[in-house]
């Protein structure tokens, strides 16, 4: 029963979030602020993780492909497919759910317990729209760019590590990342990213918005936001994969 309560309340909140803004210029300013908050501040962690993960995937692939029947360019091919299909769109989004999700939930939760949200309501402002809509729009806008960067850095990391460790040659790796490329897979990946961006920002906002109590509850909301965002990312990852790849 609690599931239906939360689902109902979530959709009611989403309806309020997407109602007409009081003043568009203020919302646009907030969106730009959130793009910086959500996107730009996540660049370093995404760059580091993607680069090293690309490298590790390349070394592991080269280590596994011992049969002479498997060409060495398969290392580059595997790195590309892993980064494009799963690591960047799903695993990086799970990492972002931790970083962005906890940030959003704790920010809105703190505003709730210090009566800042009440202050917005009393001013006659739709607090859900003002606080949450810019986060959702900023997330949906900026996360595809972050993931594109992650894909590039992962493949580049694989190249650098592959050459440095002697796992494959430059020619084989570059041939591998170009081999059997199907552009529609990018469409699949970015559909996942946009879906996950919406889930992370809206679910985290939901848990923050309905925080009750004090600092301890803000922490609990933050944890719940990360846990539920992650679970829903995994469920939607399965659903979208089933939808696109079968």
């Amino acid at each position: 029963m609690k599931l239906f309560f939360h689902l109902g309340r979530y959709f009611i909140l989403i309806k309020r979030v997407f109602s007409k803004p009081e003043k568009l210029s203020v919302y646009v300013r907030q969106i730009v602020h959130e793009i910086d908050n959500i996107g730009i501040s996540s660049l370093p962690i995404i760059a580091i993780i993607s680069f090293f993960m690309g490298g590790v995937i390349t070394i592991q692939s080269a280590f596994g492909f011992t049969s002479p029947l498997v060409p060495l360019y398969a290392v580059g091919y595997t790195a590309r497919e892993s980064m494009l299909l799963e690591f960047s769109p799903t695993i990086v989004c799970l990492i972002l759910a931790g970083k962005i999700g906890s940030n959003i939930a704790s920010e809105i939760g703190s505003m709730r317990i210090t009566e800042q949200i009440d202050a917005l309501e009393i001013m006659g402002i739709n607090s859900a729209g003002y606080l949450i809509l810019p986060k959702i729009l900023a997330g949906v806008f900026i996360m595809p760019f972050l993931i594109a960067l992650s894909m590039f850095l992962g493949i580049f990391g694989g190249y650098v590590m592959g050459i440095a460790t002697g796992a494959c040659s430059s020619y084989e790796y570059i041939f591998g990342i170009q081999a059997f490329f199907e552009p529609w897979k990018l469409y699949y990946s970015f559909t996942k990213v946009i879906t996950f961006a919406f889930l992370i920002t809206s679910i985290s906002s939901y848990f923050g918005y309905y925080t009750q109590g004090g600092a301890l509850e803000v922490g609990k909301s933050s944890t719940a936001a990360v846990v539920y965002s992650s679970i829903l990312i995994l469920i939607f990852n399965f659903l979208l994969t089933q939808l696109f790849l079968t």
Binding site: E22, K23, E115, D118, A119, I122, M123, G124, I125
Partner: peptide
């Protein structure tokens, strides 16, 4: 509500905004 001003017990100022931005907020909106 646009005609209402409220002083909360804890102030309820927006932490991420300066005093100027806080006071300007209702005017911006």
């Amino acid at each position: 509500r646009k005609k209402i001003g409220m002083l909360f017990q804890g102030g309820a100022l927006f932490d991420s905004q300066t005093l100027e931005e806080n006071v300007r907020f209702p005017l911006d909106m």
